[in-house]
Write a protein that binds this DNA or RNA. Structure first.
Lengths: 195, 195
DNA sequence: CGGATCGTTGATCAACTTCAACGGTCGTGG
DNA sequence: CCACGACCGTTGAAGTTGATCAACGATCCG
């Protein structure tokens, strides 16, 4: 369980053996099976979740009943509704499991203790968030400048693994497109690359 | 100059007098007048810029020659192309001044020294990035779920100050809409609220 | 077998863009 | 000081992209 976590953290910062022991006590392991919820929209988000194995999706259901996926979280990723977690307001997102998934839960109180007691973790999260910002910026740019086809191709290029693990209607939702649009884009690409 | 910087930082973390003295040596003050560039798309981004006074815009020009504003940075905001700064790759953004603007420049080397020498700054940037992530998430959601009218109203509500300082064609660019669309949205809102 | 889930295809529709023209305002140089 | 250009917003008409609606086929699995 914790090996994946420490592996991932130590790509950014180093931890002493003692720090690792302390950290283990902060996390609560949990297993989710396919379709099980980690967070339900409207409830209060209580944890950050580190994905050890499996695949989660974070999504919002809007007024018209449409689902919009905000994030896929695979092994080594964090999932949460941080806005709800930090403000205590009801969550705008649901999180559930696309595959059977193992997570390590970190409560807000433990998150704060962690940051206080282990300076390396302050650094870790700074770097993690810094990198996340870069990718969000790119997505944000892509959302308003790219065509449906460009969005699809760009995701297929940067995350080929996702395309295999996730049904296309979820990819569509993630890209802000209708499932039918994805289907048509794929056909068009096939036709173009065929000859 | 530095008062604005420290005021802003000390809303998140506390600094000792000694730390402030050290920090001052890391920053280079610079004045920009209206339309002057801080960064030109395609060049290498060398600095983080803290806006002391004025207003900057960060934007990308796409293949078709369209300008897409990524960020407005007013007093107390940071502007940079972090991807270019950290990777050394050519920048995807230009940054220029909408108003005459005073900035404090922080080079990559000084940014790293800062983080190393002053743990409070590690914490400051972790919190800064954490908050930025939240707002980016909201923008990202808004970009794919909201109509033109909703996007406009939501910005008008959350940043009324911007609407007064920035011409509408730039607002349009920021929201990923055509300037004409903003004009029509405004007319519609006026008609609806009139009676 | 039968239902659930997923992808495909066609037809229609709505939202927003694009193109073009015009009017107002502001600031600067002659 | 005023005239001109730059810049900005508005309006209309036409065009495009992608959404929506509906129907159908395939696959998977209990």
């Amino acid at each position: 369980m914790f090996e994946t976590l420490f592996d991932h953290i130590e790509r950014k910062v180093l931890l002493t053996q003692q720090e690792k022991v302390i950290m283990e006590s902060f996390f609560l392991p949990k297993e989710l099976h396919r379709k099980e919820f980690l967070l339900v929209q409207g409830e209060h988000c209580k944890n950050l979740a580190f994905v050890v194995k499996g695949l989660l999706k974070t999504y919002n259901i809007d007024d018209k009943g449409n689902e919009h996926i905000n994030l896929f979280a695979m092994e080594g990723w964090w999932a949460s509704d941080m806005l709800s977690l930090f403000t205590g307001k009801p969550s705008n997102f649901s999180i559930d499991a696309i595959e059977d998934t193992d997570v390590l839960l970190l409560s807000l109180a433990n998150y704060n203790s962690l940051l206080e007691k282990i300076p390396a973790m302050e650094r870790y999260f700074r770097i993690l968030y810094q990198n996340s910002l870069l990718t969000k910026d790119i997505r944000l740019m892509s959302a308003s400048t790219h065509t449906a086809e460009e969005k699809y191709l760009s995701l297929a290029l940067s995350h080929p693994d996702l395309m295999h693990r996730v049904p296309q209607n979820l990819i569509a939702s993630y890209l802000g497109l209708a499932p039918e649009t994805i289907s048509r884009v794929k056909r068009k690409i096939k036709r173009n690359t065929a000859q």
